[in-house]
Design a protein around this nucleic acid. Structure first.
Length: 367
RNA sequence: UGCCGAGUCGUCUAACGGUAGGACAGCGGCCUUUGGAGCCGUAUGCGGAGGUUCGAAUCCUCCCUCGGCAG
């Protein structure tokens, strides 16, 4: 089979490449340039160069052709601009989610030769075909499982995708890397937003939005207790950076219009009230909404599942009530639903769904 | 500068005359392909000068500073 492999220079995608090659497939590696080097060249670090070097070394060792695909413009237009717009709107974006849907499994799909039957990546997640539908199943490695970030890829995208690492855990992948004697076998796992590299998220924000002094208000006493440098440096549930003693303080509310952030250390407020939200524009992996209401849920990448109840308002929007509470439920983040081991898809978290015909139904339901 | 009270890490707060500790903030690390969270580890302080005492944050004296009553 002719397969295009997304190669990042990291261990995972390199192992994926070798596994497919070992299985006898005709593989070609692609390195996507999405790093915004122009914008951040003044900061010095160029981690993408190191990534590319490793990608080259891996391909050379494997005797596989490597193509470098510049996608900075697309990336900027679709992911970075979205990220900035969301932050500016007082929301908390999830760039990697968009990157998967719009770049890695989006523009990249369209740019390469249709001859490539499959596009493979080093993601941890399993694809299962059932009744002509492609389903996404969680990885056996609960920590590495990346179905959360894959929940926003479309059904056609998933159909063409291939995750060779899907049924392994990280330990096994490291072992494979050793057996293949990969040049990057000891590299640390990457972390943080892919396009930022070593740049701190706050520096990125500062570069684009600067600083605007605003008030920090203790919501329990409706009293100003300090000042901050801009609402967009904070997100719901955040603790660090508030710089106030007497805490721990957590951000519980943002007013981006007036540049105010509200904080609390009140247990009641932090724990009891943070248990429900709306979801919008749900992407259904299988192409259609689930008919189940009691589901499992991830609010972020990681091993933690919540039990929840999902009441759909229509095919794309719904209201979610989780079992327990979570301090970091922030508009713009994504809620991803699971039925057992299967990732059903997910949508963005909202405080409310914009007015529409379905609205009444919601209010009635919520009481 | 006539009369009371109070001064301890950046902040808040402990320590019978017996090793100045904690919390939060900070910093460092771990974890994590988003934001966050969480975990571990750390620097920094008795307002000053004397005195009493084997030993003073603690008792005494003076000074300084800050509150308050007095005005």
């Amino acid at each position: 089979m002719k397969i295009a492999v997304l190669l990042s220079g990291g261990v995972d995608s390199s192992v994926a490449l070798r596994l497919l090659q070992q299985q006898g497939h005709d593989v070609t590696a692609f390195y996507l340039k999405i790093w915004l080097q122009d914008e951040f060249s003044f900061l010095g670090d160029c981690p993408w160069e190191e990534d590319l070097e490793f990608a080259r070394a891996v391909c050379e060792q494997a005797g596989v052709k490597l193509e470098v695909l510049p996608l900075q413009d697309e990336y900027w237009a679709k992911v970075v601009s979205y990220t900035i717009a969301e932050i500016k709107a007082g929301r908390t974006p999830n760039p990697d989610m968009y990157c998967n849907r719009l770049i890695k499994f989006g523009d990249f799909y369209d740019k390469i030769d249709p001859m490539y039957e499959k596009v493979a990546s080093g993601h941890y997640g399993m694809i299962e075909e059932k009744d002509g539908k492609h389903l996404l199943k969680i990885s056996p490695d609960p920590i590495k499982d990346q179905t959360y970030f894959l929940a926003y890829v479309t059904p056609p995208q998933l159909k063409r995708a291939l995750f060779p690492l899907g049924h392994y855990d990280k330990k096994q992948i490291r072992q494979f890397a050793k057996e293949f004697d990969l040049p990057n076998q000891i590299r640390k796992d990457s972390q943080g937003i892919c396009f930022l590299g070593k740049i701190k998220f706050n520096d990125f924000v500062k570069f684009h939005l600067g600083e605007i002094k605003g008030d920090i208000i203790n919501i329990d006493e409706s009293k100003k207790v300090g000042e901050h440098q801009g609402y967009y440096y904070f997100t719901i549930g955040q603790r660090q950076g508030i710089k106030l003693h007497g805490g721990p303080w957590y951000v519980v509310k943002k007013d981006h219009i007036n540049n105010i952030i509200y904080i609390s250390r009140n247990k009641e407020l932090l724990e009891v009230k943070r248990d429900s939200f709306y979801v919008r524009n749900i992407n259904w992996i299988a192409g259609e909404p689930t008919d189940k209401k009691e589901l499992r849920l991830k609010l972020r990448h990681g091993p933690r599942f919540y039990n929840c109840r999902l009441d759909l308002l229509n095919e794309l929007d719904g209201f979610v009530k989780i079992e327990g509470f979570d301090r970091g439920i922030a508009p713009g983040q994504f809620a991803v639903f699971y039925d057992g081991e299967y990732c059903l898809g997910g949508g963005s978290i909202e405080n409310e769904i914009p007015v529409g015909s379905e609205r009444k139904l919601v209010d009635a339901d919520v009481k």
